[in-house]
Amino acid sequence: MTNLATRRNFILYVKYATLFTAVAKPRFALALDEEPLLRVTSISDKISSVFTDSMLLDLPQVSFTTETIWTDTPQEFSGPTLRSVLKTAGLAFPARDLKLSALNDYSVTCPADLIGENAPIIANRRNGNPFDIRKKGPLWLVFPYESSVLYRTETIYSLSIWHLSEISVL
């Protein structure tokens, strides 16, 4: 990694750490040896939270095995629900839509009415293990596609954003 890239990563880390600690609930502490993976912001940017992998693991986990149109075999995905992440970030169940953004600048708008109690999840484990960018990680918004025909639509597939890095309330 070049000095410029290292410096940029450090600045981003400090920025996210500062944002998180300003609004953090006492039970969370940003580990200095962990990179922030996910930023959640409100419409006014007055509420902003940053999550690391261990913070996401501290939330209640949902796990399911499903086939996807992007994988050759059924995969087990696990992670917190989108709803629980929003709640932990201090956002009530959104009456507004969400903008989901990926590391590669892909973004999509998620209608609030598609956020259920148990789906989608923000998967940070695939087949029981963390997964990296080459395998669509480290975070992937996933639905239990095989559980209902409602989860096998172009709309749902477009919301299944991998490399998820930011959620903003619109």
Rank of each mutant, 00 (worst) to 15 (best):
L164C: 02
D53Q: 12
P94G: 10
N9C: 11
D33A: 10
L59E: 09
V85E: 10
K136T: 06
R83H: 10
Y151F: 03
L170E: 10
R27G: 04
S42M: 12
L159S: 03
L170A: 11
S147L: 13
D105G: 07
A31S: 14
L12E: 10
F10T: 14
T52V: 08
N127R: 00
G137K: 00
L30K: 02
L59F: 02
I156L: 03
R96Y: 11
H163M: 12
K46T: 15
T41D: 15
R8W: 10
Y106N: 05
F10V: 09
S44D: 14
G90Q: 10
R7Q: 14
L164M: 05
L4C: 08
A102L: 04
V142G: 04
R126E: 00
D53E: 04
G128R: 01
V142A: 05
R126V: 00
T109N: 08
L141P: 00
S63Q: 10
D113T: 12
L57N: 15
T21M: 06
F64E: 01
G128M: 03
L59G: 04
D97I: 09
F28P: 04
A102V: 01
V142E: 04
R134D: 11
S158V: 02
N124T: 03
F93H: 14
I43H: 13
A92R: 06
R39F: 01
A95Q: 13
E76V: 08
E146G: 14
S48W: 02
P60S: 11
R7E: 07
S48I: 14
P74F: 02
N124W: 02
S168M: 13
E117F: 03
G79Q: 07
F28A: 04
R134F: 06
S54V: 03
N124H: 10
A22W: 09
V62Q: 07
V14Q: 15
V23L: 13
R7D: 07
E154R: 10
P130N: 13
S148Y: 06
A89W: 10
R27A: 11
L37P: 00
M55P: 00
D113E: 08
V14C: 10
T6C: 07
